[in-house]
Amino acid sequence: MKKMMYLLLAIQTGHAANYLPLSSGIQLYDVEVLVFARLLSQPESNQVSNRAEVDLTSLNAMEAADDDMAWLIESEKPDQEGDQWQVPIEGEKTSDAKALAWFSFNDLPSDNAVFNKIDKHPSMRALFYQKWRQPATPYRNPGFVKISNWSEDIPVDQPLDAPEEESIRNNTLAGFANENEPEDTFLVPIKPDYTIRGKVAFSKQRFQHGHVDINLYRESLDGETIIYRTEQSTQIELGSWQYFDHPQFGVMMKVTLVTDFSNKP
C-alpha cells in the first residue's frame, strides 16, 4: 500500500522533477529515446492519406531539474543518544534517502555515439535524442512523455536536435495571419520537413514495456505536408536498444535500471 501511494504521487506530479524515497521500494530507470528518418523521396500529396496527429494536449515534455536540486538527498543518521532510538531489526530498511526522478539530463545529441552513427549514415537523418530518469509507470495506464523537435514546442534557450534549427526557428510563416486575409484569420503553425512530434512511455507489470506514438512530418513533391505515424507497444529488455520500425522513420528506446544515485558534479 505504501509503495502504491508513492507511485501515485510520482505520476500525479505531471512529470515535474520530484524526490522519491528509496525505502519505498520504487526503482528508477534512465530512459533514452532516439528518432531518425529515412532519406526517401516523397510522393505528391494526393497520393498519400495523412495519418491523424497524436493528441499531446495534456502532456508535458521532460525538462531538466533546477540547478540546486541534487540527484540524491542522503539519509540522515538517527540520534543514537536520543530516547527514541532503537537498534534496527535485521533486514529492515531504515534508509530515508531520496532520489530525484522525472527530470532530463543535459546530454547533447552530438555526444551520443548512436545518434552520431545514424546521422552519418548516407540514407538516414538523426532527428531527436533525449535521456531522462523516471520510475516505471503502470502497464494499463502508461505515463507518456511528450517528445518533439518542432520549434513551437521548444523553449528559445533550448537547442533543437534537427540540423536546420535556425531555418526552422526563424520560420516567419508559423502562427501569423496573412496581411491580405481578414483580421480574424489565423494560419495553423507550419511543421517543417523532418519534424517529429509524439509521446513515449515506459511501463512495467510483470515485464517491462516500451510504448511509442509519434508523427513524422515530411514535405511532399508538390510542397504540401505529409503526416506519417507509428503507434507501437512491445516488451523490452533492460540495457538494450529496442527498435520500433516504420517505412519512413525509426524510433529507438533504451531503458537502464539506475544503480548509482551519486549526486551530479
Score class of each variant (00 low, 15 high):
Tyr6Phe: 14
Leu9Val: 07
Ile11Gln: 11
Ile11His: 07
Ile26Ala: 04
Val31Gln: 02
Glu32Trp: 03
Glu32Asn: 12
Ala37Gln: 05
Gln42Leu: 11
Ser49His: 15
Asn50Val: 06
Arg51Met: 10
Leu56Met: 12
Glu63Ile: 06
Trp71Lys: 05
Lys77Val: 12
Glu81Ala: 10
Gln86Phe: 12
Val87Ile: 09
Lys93Gly: 03
Lys93Phe: 08
Asp96Trp: 03
Ser104Asn: 02
Asn106Ile: 07
Asp107Ala: 07
Ile118Gln: 01
His121Phe: 06
Met124Gln: 14
Arg125Ala: 13
Lys131Phe: 08
Trp132Phe: 15
Arg133Met: 08
Pro135Met: 10
Tyr139Gln: 12
Ile147Asp: 00
Trp150Ile: 02
Ser151Met: 09
Val156His: 13
Pro163Gln: 08
Ser167Val: 12
Arg169Met: 06
Ala174Asn: 05
Gly175Lys: 03
Phe176Thr: 13
Asp184Cys: 13
Leu187Tyr: 13
Pro192Phe: 03
Pro192Glu: 06
Asp193Phe: 11
Ile214Lys: 00
Leu216Ile: 06
Leu221Tyr: 15
Gly223Gln: 09
Glu224Gln: 14
Glu231Ala: 09
Gln235Pro: 04
Gln235Asp: 10
Trp241Pro: 05
Trp241Asp: 06
Phe249Thr: 01
Val251Pro: 02
Leu257Glu: 15
Val258Ile: 15
Thr259Ile: 08
Pro265Asp: 07
